[in-house]
């Protein structure tokens, strides 16, 4: 049991303890005074002097002390009474508080009950609402589903129609393309032939030509047919042969190419030439 627990259980103890301590301090305070050596020498002289002069004063002092003691006892009694009263008051108060608490508890129980009831009612309502909602939703979904089916059917029909149209267009396009491709091919091969002739006329075999020499170059042309660059893709291994090839192309420039307006020139922007006398 700790001190605090003791105090809480019996507050009078505290009062007593306070009083005792006060008294003890007073006593010690006196002895402290006398124990101071410096001061005590002077005071001692005075005390001796006093003792010698007035005996009556001690009498008075004693009386005073007695009175004081009596007063203190009364005071103590009064305090005791006061403490007792406070104690009893507090007990009453506590009792009152307990009653209040009890009442509060009961009230809470009632409230809780009420709340449960209310919640139950709300849950019921929510449930009903949800059911309603679901029903509505289902109805809506059904409508949507029907609409969707209708749309799909529509789309299917449209798609089929579109495909049919596309097929027709495709056929037409293919026929046109075939015609165009045939035309392009004949034009392209015509120009290929013209270019071949022009380069052949300008190509002079170098004296160091040996069987098996072959050179591949990439030539870039502009719409005028002018050669803008010649790049060797595959060297013959013979500088003179390679040079003769480059020279042939440069000398043959400008090469005959289809007009830009035909749309065929793009095929001639870059032309690869294979110079291969053995082919």
């Amino acid at each position: 049991m700790t001190i605090w627990q003791t105090i809480r259980k019996n507050p009078a103890v505290l009062v007593w303890a306070v009083i005792i301590h006060v008294l003890a301090f007073i006593a010690i305070g006196v002895s402290f005074k006398s124990s101071d050596p410096k001061i005590s020498a002077v005071k001692a002289e005075k005390v001796i002097e006093a003792v010698a002069i007035d005996e009556r004063k001690i009498e008075e002092e004693l009386k005073k002390l007695k009175q004081e003691d009596k007063r203190k006892k009364n005071e103590q009694k009064r305090l005791q009474n006061k403490a007792n009263k406070a104690k009893s008051d507090r007990r009453k108060e506590e009792k009152k508080l307990r009653a209040l608490k009890q009442k509060q508890k009961e009230q809470e129980a009632i409230n809780k009950n009420k709340r449960i009831q209310e919640n139950k009612r709300l849950a019921e309502l929510e449930k009903k609402r949800k059911v309603q909602e679901r029903k509505e939703r289902e109805a809506e979904e059904k409508i949507n589903e029907l609409e969707k089916q209708r749309q799909e059917k529509q789309a299917q029909l449209e798609k089929e129609e579109k495909q049919r149209q596309e097929k027709i267009a495709e056929k037409k396009r293919a026929a046109e393309q075939k015609k165009r491709a045939a035309y392009e091919q004949s034009e392209v091969s015509k120009y290929k032939g013209l270019i071949r002739g022009q380069i052949t006329r300008n190509w002079i075999f170098p004296a160091s030509y040996q069987k098996g020499m072959k050179c591949k170059i990439l030539v870039r042309l502009i719409p005028s047919g002018d050669v803008v660059s010649v790049r060797i893709l595959q060297s013959s291994g013979n500088a003179a042969f390679d040079r003769s090839v480059e020279m042939a192309v440069n000398k043959a420039s400008p090469l005959p190419v289809p007009k830009s307006s035909t749309g065929l020139f793009d095929q001639f922007r870059e032309v690869e030439f294979v110079f291969d006398p053995n082919a």
Binding site: K192, R196, T200, F205, E272
Partner: peptide, 10 residues
């Protein structure tokens, strides 16, 4: 890319 073969010189 068009490829043209040159098999003859002048």
């Amino acid at each position: 890319i068009l490829t043209i073969e040159i098999t003859h010189g002048s």
